[in-house]
Computed example of a mutant assay.
Amino acid sequence: MSTPPAPSGPAPEPELEIVHLLRAVAVELGLHSARFAHRNGMHATDVRALIALMDARRAGEETSAGRLGGALGLNSAGTTALVDRLERAGLVRRVRGRQDRRRVVVEVEDRAVDLGWAFFGPLIERSVELLRGYDDHQLTAIRDFLTGVREAAAGAE
């Protein structure tokens, strides 16, 4: 990852510099995710779906196909095609809900978690290593900032 050349003229305000850096990080993460998708014969939406399902699994939440589609901005037909594709690849499965056995939920397979960890694990480990260099106050500030930006992006339509 190379640093872009400094613009001529006065230096940007520190806040704007951080916003530009965040944008650059988002671009690099998007490219990293695209490389994962390409290497594994997936669409970008497939990767987003797997991330959503892994997040739900970590939170102990069940995810119906409708909820997954809503989170990804897909219609019913698109969601069905997505889940069918991931199921054929052995990355997800449809199962009966734990609380309501009439409900069908989509769960991520361990194979998908292993595949993701093999590719994203080194980046995750490096990120955790960097965060260990910050104290609790700094970690709270980082968490608050990233949460605020995520919420602002989610609300921007």
Rank of each mutant, 00 (worst) to 15 (best):
R35N: 11
E109F: 01
A34N: 07
G66F: 03
M54Q: 15
G70D: 09
L82M: 02
R39W: 07
D84Y: 14
L22K: 06
S33D: 12
H43W: 08
L139K: 05
V92Q: 04
P14E: 01
F119W: 04
V95K: 03
R48L: 15
P5D: 03
A141I: 08
D135L: 11
P4M: 03
M1D: 05
S2Q: 10
R96A: 15
R48P: 04
L131N: 02
A141C: 06
S76N: 14
H43V: 08
F36T: 00
E107C: 03
R94Y: 01
E13G: 07
A89P: 03
A24P: 01
F145S: 12
I51G: 10
G121I: 05
E125F: 10
A154Q: 08
E28T: 10
G69C: 07
G121Q: 11
I124D: 06
H32C: 11
R101D: 11
G155E: 02
G41T: 06
P5E: 08
E87I: 02
H20K: 10
R94H: 07
L130T: 07
D144L: 11
D114T: 12
S76H: 15
S33W: 04
I142W: 10
G97W: 05
T63F: 06
G69D: 02
F145M: 10
L82Q: 00
T80S: 01
F119I: 00
I142T: 05
G73Y: 03
A34R: 15
A6Q: 07
I142C: 07
L50T: 02
L22T: 06
S2N: 05
L131C: 04
P14R: 00
L22V: 08
R39G: 14
E62C: 03
A77T: 15
L68N: 00
A44H: 12
A89M: 09
R48C: 10
A11L: 09
H137A: 12
R93C: 09
V149H: 03
R57H: 14
A141H: 12
D135E: 14
Q99G: 12
A52W: 03
D46M: 12
A81Y: 14
S2D: 11
S33N: 06
R93T: 12
Y134S: 06
D135T: 06
Q138R: 14
R132G: 12
L16V: 14
P12Q: 00
T147C: 05
A112T: 04
P7F: 00
H137W: 09
E151M: 02
D55T: 10
H137M: 04
R48I: 07
R150P: 01
E157N: 09
T3F: 10
P5S: 04
P7V: 01
G133H: 13
T140A: 05
G69N: 04
A141G: 07
V25L: 13
A152K: 07
D100F: 01
L130K: 13
V83Q: 03
H137K: 14
L91D: 01
R132C: 08
P12G: 01
G30F: 11
V108H: 00
G9I: 11
L72Y: 05
P14L: 02
L82R: 00
R39E: 12
R23M: 05
G97L: 03
V92D: 00
V105D: 09
L21E: 13
V95L: 11
D136M: 08
P7E: 03
N40R: 13
G133W: 03
G70R: 15
M42L: 15
T45I: 12
N40A: 10
S8W: 02
D135K: 04
